[in-house]
Each structure stands twice: as C-alpha cells, then as structure tokens.
Nucleic acid binder design. Structure first.
Length: 269
DNA sequence: GATCTATGTAGAT
DNA sequence: TCTACCTAGATCG
C-alpha cells in the first residue's frame, strides 16, 4: 500500500507509539535477526519518513531503514502481541502497541552515512517541510522525458507513486506523455501545490482520494470510482470505464513497466 | 488449488 | 528493456 503518504502516516504513528520508548525488536521470520539483535531493548528515539523510505532512529549510527516496495505492509495493534502469523520480517513492541512488518524490499540497520546517501539521491518530498519544489522544476524543465515517467522518478519527486501520478496529471489536464521541457512553470507550481494537499489528505485518511467535491455527484452516478485500495480516484485502474468528468473511456497502457491511466479527452495539455 | 496482480526498485542485459 | 525479489488478496477453474 505504499506511496509516500503511507510511509509518512507510519512514521507519524510509530513516533507516537514508540518514540522515546524502549522497544523489543525481533524477526520472527529470521531474515532480519542480526539487525533486530542490534536494536532490541534500545530506545527508538525518532521515526521519520522521506519519500517512500521509513527510518527508525535508535542512535546516530544505528538507524533501521525500511522500504515497503510493492507488497510490504506494516500493521499495528495494542498489546498483547499474539504469536506471529506468516512471514513477519520485523516485529516492534513498545509500551502499549506492537507492529509487524511483512514483505518489505528493505529492512536493514544503517549508519548515518548510509542513510544520508539514500536521502541525497531523493528529490523533494511534497510531504516534508524542507521540500524545495524548484529542485524538481529544474530537472523537469530541462528534460524530454514524459512527465508520467519523471513523476515516478524518486530523484525528481520523492513519494509519488502510480496512483498519485495518474491522478495529478488528470486533475491538471496534462497528457502523460508531455515532455517536461514544454511544461509551463505556473502549471508545475499548481501541480506541486496540489500534490502537497492531496498527499497530506492521504496521510490523514490512510488512502488516496483525489475526486473534487464538484465532481462527486456526477461521479456517484458512474460506477465504480472507489479503487480497491479504498480511495476515490478519477482514472487510476479505471481503463475502459467512463471518465467521471466527460464520459470518454479511460485509456490504459504500460509505460516503463508500470500501468498508466489517463482520459484522452480531459488530458490534452 | 492454481494463477494473476499490485500503490516499487535494483541490477542485469 | 527485462527480470528478480517479496507477500497477500483477487480471480480463475
């Protein structure tokens, strides 16, 4: 379930549940056993996210780095923790809650330098206060790469995934194959501002909702608009269904090994 | 029960 | 541009 909003939501939650507390860390599955033993019984001082990366900071040179990849999940519940079910890579238990991590692409203990290397290759993250939208613009405005590809490039914008990219392009009427260098700067600024708002909403709700209020009555009459992930969207995973705004069939194609969706009528810019 | 699919990325070709 | 990785829910038969 992981675009940037998911990781920031987890960071916020972990900070609240575990921040400043001694935690028990284990790897029921065994694949993170060595790492878990390094932090088990230590104080988790801070949890934070950058793009799709989650960091549990235990000390300046001891940071657990988690990337959920395509399938990873992180669930949490109040204590007591039951016996682990299935493949649990890491279990964290604090004073009141426990959390299980399954199927991540990365779960490893890193040093400060290694964490910096990861963060240095990430572009600005719309969910972080320190984000600099101009850095993204600098790259996009010089590039012939289709916007749909640049938006998924974590070195350009950190945290955007397949749902947000499809939806942000739709909301601004931009065709996905538009080269970055022909994009108007004002339009980019609007898209960035919109991303910040949509992703913040995603953090609050734990799902991606992008359908504007004025379209909801119309959307209600055209099923379905609620994606499997739980959010209300315009085009994501709706290929072959009518556009919620104009009724044209939503298009779909594979681009750079990812499914891309757009409305051929609404997205012409 | 087998097969397909997925909000992702790294590494090989 | 392709493949491998990892897991669980949806879909197929």
């Amino acid at each position: 379930m992981p675009e940037g909003h998911t990781l920031h939501r987890l960071a916020r939650s972990h900070q609240k549940l575990f921040g400043g507390s001694v935690v028990e860390v284990s790897s029921p599955q065994g694949r993170f056993a060595a790492g878990a033993s390094l932090v088990d019984g230590q104080v988790l001082t801070r949890a934070e996210a950058h793009g799709k990366h989650l960091f549990h900071v235990y000390g300046p040179e001891t940071i657990v780095h988690v990337h959920l990849g395509l399938y990873g999940t992180f669930d949490e519940s109040p204590l007591p923790a039951p016996a682990p079910v299935g493949q649990v890579r890491m279990r964290v238990a604090g004073p009141t809650h426990w959390a299980d991590l399954r199927g991540p692409t990365a779960c490893e203990v890193l040093t400060r330098t290694e964490v910096k290397a990861i963060r240095d290759r990430l572009g600005p993250d719309p969910l972080r206060r320190d984000a600099d939208a101009d850095r993204a613009w600098t790259r996009i405005s010089k590039s012939r790469t289709p916007l749909a590809v640049s938006l998924m490039d974590q070195a350009v914008v950190a945290g955007v995934g397949n749902v947000f990219r499809a939806e942000i392009l739709f909301r601004h009427g931009v065709h996905p194959l538009t080269p970055g260098k022909v994009l108007d700067r004002t339009l980019w600024t609007d898209m960035w501002t919109d991303l910040v708002g949509l992703m913040r909403l995603g953090v609050r709700r734990g799902r991606i909702d992008t359908v504007r209020d004025e379209h909801l009555p119309k959307a209600t009459g055209r099923a379905p608009r609620v994606d499997r992930h739980g959010g209300e969207v315009y085009v994501y995973r709706r290929a072959g269904m009518p556009c919620l705004v104009c009724g044209t069939e939503v298009a779909g194609q594979v681009l750079a090994a990812r499914n891309l969706f757009w409305c051929p009528t609404c997205q012409t810019a």
